[in-house]
Nucleic acid binder design. Sequence first.
DNA 1: ACATGAACAGTCTGTTCATCC
DNA 2: GGATGAACAGACTGTTCATGT
Lengths: 124, 124
Amino acid sequence: MTEKKRERGYSGFLMRQRAFLKLYLITYAEESGSYGFQALGLLKDKFKQFGFKPQHSEIYRALHELMEEDILKRKKAPKDDAKYQEIAVYYIHDRERAKAYKRLVKADLDRCMGILHTAIRDNY
Amino acid sequence: MTEKKRERGYSGFLMRQRAFLKLYLITYAEESGSYGFQALGLLKDKFKQFGFKPQHSEIYRALHELMEEDILKRKKAPKDDAKYQEIAVYYIHDRERAKAYKRLVKADLDRCMGILHTAIRDNY
DNA sequence: ACATGAACAGTCTGTTCATCC
DNA sequence: GGATGAACAGACTGTTCATGT
């Protein structure tokens, strides 16, 4: 009942970037408290080889959504190194919800792989 | 030089539906003269299992683009079976351009597979 | 119902602007 | 420059309307 989106105006082609980023942000939060700007850097590095360069605003929107969905929570904290700058560190809030969301995205990832694989088989 | 799109407003996440459909429409045109409504049915059937249901307008837009790009040409023709209804049958216009476009999309398909595979490896 | 096309409309997301350390 | 957030703006595409067989 929590996930009811994607009824109107969606034909079911490949998944949205938002969901993809949320998956990584949950994983990062599981591993250790992470924050937006850091995740952005990690993801940019990781996907550079694929020509995918996520934007900062999309990361923040994804984090905000994960909070609205009670999957993550955050604390404002001073940054480790010297400077007094405040960062927003994210943690898992509801582990069950997090797991459920990841299951959902896994199914979507598999679905997308199926679509792409079918196209390669059919057209080459 | 023909394909110069995707400079502004594109961060390089997964490919667009339009390109995906154009790939199939080229292949269908290679195999035999095909027309929009027929292709729509074939693709709906094929991807139903993946929850992907392409819309007719997107098919037609894709076909129109392929003509603008001089990859396909079309003839208006009466339908085979009885009825007098006229259909727009598409053929390959420039075989080289068609091949080039398919090569481009192949690279994009591989790129997308890489992104998805990376996410599965990293998060599960 | 088959078939094509175009206008309309809304979502996703990239760019820009703003703020603070 | 690091860090976050929000406003602005445009592309993609789904829905609807139109037209005819």
